[in-house]
Each structure stands twice: as C-alpha cells, then as structure tokens.
Design a protein around this nucleic acid. Structure first.
Lengths: 131, 131
DNA sequence: TTCTATACTTACCAAAAAGAGAGTGAAGAT
DNA sequence: ATCTTCACTCTCTTTTTGGTAAGTATAGAA
C-alpha cells in the first residue's frame, strides 16, 4: 500500500490512532470550500473577506466564515483584524497552508490529466445502465 | 498560483468550465469513504464486498455500495460479478484508481508530517477563544 | 424443510449541513 | 438625519446525508 505506508512503524503495523487522526485531518481539509479558498489565497494573499466572497464561486457568507474559521484554527491561515470602521479583516496563508496547497496540487493535476478519462468512464457506465 | 497553474492557457486565463469540472471531480473523489476504499484496495486487490465492509472501519452497507458504485462509474475500479450462489463480487482498482491513490499520497503525507503542528494550532486557537 | 451465506435494494427516519435573509454597529459621506 | 460599507452573527427553513432494518434470490448443507 502506498498511501498508508508512511504511518507504519518498524513492525509493519499501522497505529490506528494516528490513522484516525490523519483521516480526520484529511476529511477536514479535503473539503470543497477549503480547497477553493486555499487556491485563491495561493493566487493572492492577503485577501479581505469580501474579496474572497467574490472570488470563491458560489460560496455563501456563512460557509465562507465557517471555512475561514476552521482554516484559522488548523493554522492554515492568519486572520488580521484592523480596528477601523467599516471593519477590515485580512486573510493570508501560513507556511503550513502553503504546504497543503502544494500537496493538493498533485490531486488537482491528477484530476486535470484524467478528467476526460473520467468523463468517458461515466458515459460508458451510464450507457450500460440504460440498456 | 501553484495548483491552478496547469489549467491556464497561454493567455493566462483559466477556463471556468474546466475549473468547474475539475472541482467537481475533486469534490467527488475527496470524500471520506472513497479515500478509505482506495486505501484498502491499494493494500489488496481484488477484494469482495464483505471483506471491504469488514476492513473499512465504520462504513455501512449502504454507504459502501454507494461509494463503490460511484467509484465504478468514475472508472476508478472494476466490479466483477461471478454467476454463482451465494453471489460473489470482486472489486479491483483500475490504473486510473491507482493513479488517484498515488496523488492522494501527497496529501496523506502532508497530514502525517504536520498533524502535530495542526494539533498545536488548534490548542492555541481554542485557548485564545476561552479567555 | 429450514437455515445459511452473499450482495445487494428499498423504505423510513433522524441528524447534520447548508441556504436565505434579517440584524448589528459605528464612522464617515451626502 | 439618513445612507453606506464591512464583516460578520443569528434564526429559520430546506436539502442532503447517513443509519437502521427489512426484503430478495438461490444453492447447498443439515
């Protein structure tokens, strides 16, 4: 097994707690809005709340706030509040966040390289279903 | 921007349709059960339905069936039905599925390398919230 | 004849996630 | 005096998700 290999200790047994933790982190981090916010902040950083709202296509205020809070909590980005009126808040990636962006790059590129293949597979599957 | 770079054409503009498609594929593929099934099939392939049910911790029959169907439709795995009684069905990764597993490997390793950092960030964040 | 094994499908229900929309607060412009 | 801006927060409703449990089909064992 490729993915799991790195969690194995010398006896070849994976630690279920580490496994669960990593799975939890991946589950958290591999979500739609997190990925899209990550992408926008990789392109330009820092960005203000409203800028992100405009750029992350389809995100609601609520989901953006929630996503940003989670990412802040996980140390993926920093939130800088300026004590001005109207309020101004800037979000910027941390090195940790940038690292995640790079790791995701592999999946992104896989999807780019294979989306035609996936499309074909889907058409073939749906075709077979009908008949 | 790192991740998005590969979708840019010569004018430096990303195609929104390709973007949306890739985002959709990633959203589909980056789900908890898909990742865990991928992992089990990377470790051993082919596997029967009941084997997977036992190995993928916490998955229900319904979710496993659903996940396997989605993955089959996307061309990530093959489903081989034997005309015997009681039924026998074997699932195996396709090269496409194996490629995805490898791509995810980067994220998996990122999570492994940084889970302590994330834990520390969370504790710091939660600490600040209380006071 | 009844039981078991296998790989599902279907129906129902509860819980969780997400969307919509209104409300907030205070400085500065009109 | 009213309006606008920004970054939310809060409530209400709808949608989606996922779990549970029952049903199905059939060959061979007991």
């Amino acid at each position: 097994m490729i993915a799991k290999a790195a969690t194995e200790n010398t006896s070849g047994v994976t630690d279920p707690r580490l496994d669960a933790l990593v799975t939890e982190i991946i589950g958290r981090v591999a979500d739609k809005w997190t990925m899209l916010v990550l992408e926008e902040l990789e392109a330009e950083s820092p960005l203000r709340f409203t800028r992100l709202l405009e750029r992350v296509d389809g995100v609601s205020q609520k989901m953006l706030t929630q996503t940003l809070r989670h990412m802040e909590r996980d140390g993926l980005l920093t939130r800088k509040v300026y004590a001005v009126v109207p309020p101004k808040v800037e979000y910027a990636l941390t090195p940790l966040g940038r690292g995640l962006g790079e790791a995701f790059c592999g999946v992104w590129r896989w999807a780019e390289r294979h989306f035609e293949e996936i499309g074909a597979a889907r058409r073939a599957f749906d075709d077979g279903r009908d008949r």
